[in-house]
Amino acid sequence: MKHPADDLYETDLEDEDDDLVGLFRAREAALPAIALDVAAVHARATELRAEARRTWAARTASRVATGFRDRNGAWLSSIGGLAAAACFFLSLGAHESAFAPSDEREAAVGFCPETVEPRAAPGNLLSVASFSRAAQETTMSTDVGVSDARIVTCTLFGP
């Protein structure tokens, strides 16, 4: 269907000979070449992927844990926690470098950073609450450079 504006501005569809186009072309020809660094782009893309992976893994684990807590009794919360853990580790394991040290600060922090405390209560090895906390801390862990898998392991099983 033809829009009223099509008639009103029809001539603007033929702007190849426009004087303004000529100005833009002249300017483009005079512009200096920019330095192209493909390696920097690849490095930044890797960062973006890692960021998206962490966010997705934490969000997915949290959703699974919350769903089990809301829909099932307390005895099922352990299964919920297990499901969330499996989901989290699968998501990390599906991608390369997920378990690699993120940077040098990690080595200085040690296997279990001081900010993470074991939350596995007796009789409820993988409680939903503890896993939710772990998922939350995972997203925060990027600030200190601690890898996702390590911080969850420390949270669930202790140092």
Binding site: A45, A52, W56, A57, A83, C87, H95
Partner: peptide, 29 residues
Amino acid sequence: LPFPFALGMAPPAETRSPSLEATERDAFA
């Protein structure tokens, strides 16, 4: 689909591995 992807929680495309094929690298370059 394996768990957890069967729950509709497949990771978004941007999280996938950066292992590009040589042709993809060339195309991107």
